[in-house]
Write a protein that binds this DNA or RNA. Structure first.
Lengths: 189, 189
DNA sequence: ATCCGCATGTAACCCGTTACATGATTCT
DNA sequence: AGAATCATGTAACGGGTTACATGCGGAT
């Protein structure tokens, strides 16, 4: 039933549609409004990705029947199917792999942003704790590495220090987020 | 003369060969030894990339003539040509674009690591200052954005805070690196 | 009447991943 | 001898970027 697994990009699109049905162009605008345009999907990436999701039956274009036999041309608003929502929830629940936490950090943040109101605070806090643990493990590994191996001169060493500094910042952020979400559990809507 | 411009990966390979001639497999081992294996190039990426660089005349296989008519099979050690070294130096001198500093941070760090002993301290410090300025601009933009736009709930806000925190850490690192390299200019070899 | 923004799409091109294939050398 | 490692390569596949094409709707 399921072919190869979804791309990160496809997961993000699907997740965004789970938050709010939208057209391809609407998604584009949302990404454009993102601070500083971290990622600006091109039409050649966006529309084929939506078609792939539709082909899998994870999303569907809302029936906006024109008066004629017009098949709803121009302006296709997609919404997730039940299968799509299930896949999305599964994605949100994907465990944090300590081995790839650095590579996947952006994705994890994306998932965290999409967890609001779909997961109870307990589950969100568990996710953040997993993330914090993975980051702690990663930074510990880096520290061990810098203690042993001494590659080249000062510049590589400083570059490593940079990696250490940013991941420590991520770790501190995760701890801060846990504290903040623990203090005032749910805004009760 | 020049086709399309080089990939980041090609630039990194070229830069690594400028530091020390090596075979494809040697490069692979170097990447493997990198802390936590941030990037593990596959054979299908590595060897074609080296061939492309060779085709452009930026690198060449050292003449290791076997006794027979053996064309130096198995174990091709590459070294940069003069043109390759020139391209590499140009790459190192590429200005830091404030608009893309977040996206290119990893690349900038890579370039910084490769600048040691090829640029005088003055030029290295100028690069770090450019980087710091770009990061300051970026974080300022993020702060402005968070002050104005209030997207969704607490999670997106926290995700933005994360971006702010890591880029502030990068900025602090750049300032620290400037201070450290200014204090003891050159190890004099 | 025209130009610009909305909105969707397609094709060429390039590159990376995965997986496999092939020899030579070294280890057991 | 057989296995693991060194070492280089190739083919299928997939997806993203760039660039172009198209049509509608509202603004000047």
């Amino acid at each position: 039933m399921a072919g190869r697994q979804l791309t990160s990009f496809e997961h993000i699109l699907l997740g965004r549609l789970c938050i709010e049905p939208s057209s391809g162009y609407g998604l584009k605008r949302i990404f454009a409004a993102t601070p500083m345009g971290v990622y600006q999907p091109s039409s050649g990436a966006l529309y084929p990705a939506l078609h792939r999701l539709e082909l899998r039956g994870l999303i569907q274009a809302q029936a906006l029947p024109g008066p004629d036999g017009d098949t709803g041309r121009h302006r296709r608003v997609y919404e997730p199917t039940q299968a799509g929502q299930a896949v999305h929830l599964n994605w949100l629940r994907t465990p944090v792999e300590p081995a790839t936490v650095s590579h996947d950090l952006g994705l994890h943040l994306m998932r965290f942003a999409m967890m609001e109101r779909v997961f109870p605070p307990r589950e969100v806090l568990a996710f953040l704790q997993d993330l914090a643990n993975a980051l702690a493990e990663f930074t510990a590994g880096l520290e061990r590495f810098t203690a042993v191996a001494d590659l080249g001169g000062r510049h590589p060493r400083l570059a490593l220090d940079h990696g250490l500094a940013v991941h420590r910042a991520s770790l501190r952020w995760a701890e801060h987020a846990i504290a903040e979400l623990s203090a005032v559990p749910a805004p009760s809507r």
